[in-house]
């Protein structure tokens, strides 16, 4: 998490203080609730294909969002990879504000990271090219490895909707 230290020194300070107190404060994601969506009375909640299938279908109806070798048997640095993935997800959703209309797919091949996502066509291509370069440059300087963005654009938000519940 060196990049975080560089990024926001105050936050890092707070994190250090928190870690001293050793209190675990992350929210509990209960298995019976996480990744599942409730039916609304009006039946108008839009779900993508990813959201429509609960987590126990991973590997059967839908596949993984992170492709790396760290989770396999006898592999190195599983925790670092997970934290980096989390950071990448937060950074990309924040940089492409209100534009990312799917989950962010992170694929690690050799030492490169390829990030795939569905993006709404709400900004001009010029801005999009700028954001691609900006994201790749910053992420690669933090992760110390080449990062590639492989985006696919959709005309409207409704294009990714799989069903309404």
């Amino acid at each position: 998490m060196n990049f975080l230290n560089k990024l926001v020194p105050q936050v890092a300070l707070e994190v250090q203080q928190l870690s001293k107190s050793a209190i675990h404060t992350s929210a509990v994601c209960c298995r019976v609730q996480s990744g599942r969506y409730r039916i609304t009375t009006k039946r108008d909640r839009p779900l993508t294909y990813e959201m429509a299938n609960p987590p126990h279908f991973i590997g059967h109806r839908k596949s993984w969002n992170s492709w790396n070798t760290s989770t396999l048997k006898d592999s190195l640095r599983p925790s670092q990879t997970a934290i980096e993935d989390l950071f990448i997800r937060k950074f990309v959703t924040g940089t492409w504000h209100a534009l990312v209309s799917s989950e962010i797919i992170i694929k690690r091949q050799h030492n490169t990271i390829r990030i795939a996502a569905l993006i709404r066509q709400a900004i001009s291509p010029r801005k999009m090219y700028f954001l691609i370069g900006y994201t790749e440059e910053l992420l690669s300087s933090w992760m110390q490895c080449p990062v590639t963005l492989e985006l696919q654009t959709v005309a409207d938000k409704k294009d990714v909707v799989f069903k309404y519940i």
């Binding site: 993984w64 790396n68 070798t69 694929k107 690690r108 050799h110 390829r114």
Partner: peptide, 9 residues
């Protein structure tokens, strides 16, 4: 090795 897909060790 160069053509190893992602997620495979």
């Amino acid at each position: 090795e160069r053509n190893l897909p992602e997620g495979v060790a």
